[in-house]
């Protein structure tokens, strides 16, 4: 028989104080690090640390709700780091493009666009199929955000270890469209939850699968980005 307590157990409550202090220490270290750094890329890495402090603080509450709140926190961190890193790259590219023309001949010739990597790793040719298959299946079993992340990791790894380069724009748009539709599916599921609670089973599946598809396809997109980066000759 399961026993769900009315109040938070004392063990969890006793862990709260050290956990919050830990969060404060980690946050403090990360923030002072940001304050003394000069280069933007280092600041970006250090903000990751601040994000960890935030996660500790949320998780320390130690209830089911806290766990549910950790997930949005994680997502926000992931999302922001991705958007901002992209802005950083584009800023630096603009900077170099806007530089003096004399620099441009050299700078552009081998730098603004990624050059191919001469690399032949065994794992990149044999492993992806299997790992991706396992992860997608497992992610599909999990569904929801967690499943999406797992399956997305698999897709990401698969796409980015393929050989060909030059991903057409249409594919990226297509992936975007899938995720957009699945997002709508999820929203519809959620709204109907409140209009027609008697169909909660169907709606639950709609929501879970929508979120799964959405996250997985999004992470696949990162794989597409990465493939451009680490393309092979």
């Amino acid at each position: 028989m399961v026993l769900i307590p009315e109040v938070v157990p004392t063990i969890t409550a006793s862990l709260y104080l050290p956990a919050v202090y830990l969060a404060m220490i980690v946050g403090f270290l990360g923030l002072t690090g940001i304050a003394i750094q000069k280069k933007d890329i280092h600041i970006l890495i250090l903000t990751d640390l601040v994000g960890l402090a935030m996660l500790i603080m949320v998780a320390a509450v130690g209830t089911d709700l806290a766990e549910a709140l950790v997930l949005p926190g994680l997502v926000v961190e992931l999302a922001e780091i991705m958007a901002i890193s992209e802005i950083l790259i584009s800023r630096e590219m603009r900077k170099i493009e806007n530089a003096e023309p004399i620099d441009r001949v050299i700078a552009r010739k081998h730098s603004v666009f990624p050059f191919p990597l001469k690399l032949d790793m065994e794992i990149m040719t044999t492993a992806p199929n299997f790992i991706a298959l396992v992860m997608i299946l497992y992610g599909a079993f999990l569904t929801g955000f967690t499943g999406g992340a797992v399956a997305g990791g698999g897709i990401l790894f698969y796409i980015f270890s393929r050989k060909a380069r030059g991903l057409p724009v249409i594919v990226i748009d297509g992936i975007g469209a899938i995720s957009g539709f699945s997002w709508c599916l999820w929203i519809i599921g959620f709204v109907l939850f409140f209009i027609a609670p008697q169909y909660w089973l169907l709606l639950l599946f709609m929501a879970a699968c929508g979120l799964f598809l959405k996250v997985a396809s999004k992470l696949g997109l990162i794989g597409a980005m990465m493939r451009e980066e680490y393309k092979k000759e």
Partner: peptide
């Protein structure tokens, strides 16, 4: 969760647009 997935989606819109 709606918001959370919206945040993720928006950041992907931004990033993929830039990409």
């Amino acid at each position: 969760t709606i918001l959370e997935s919206t945040i993720l989606m928006m950041s992907f819109v931004i990033a993929s647009w830039l990409v």
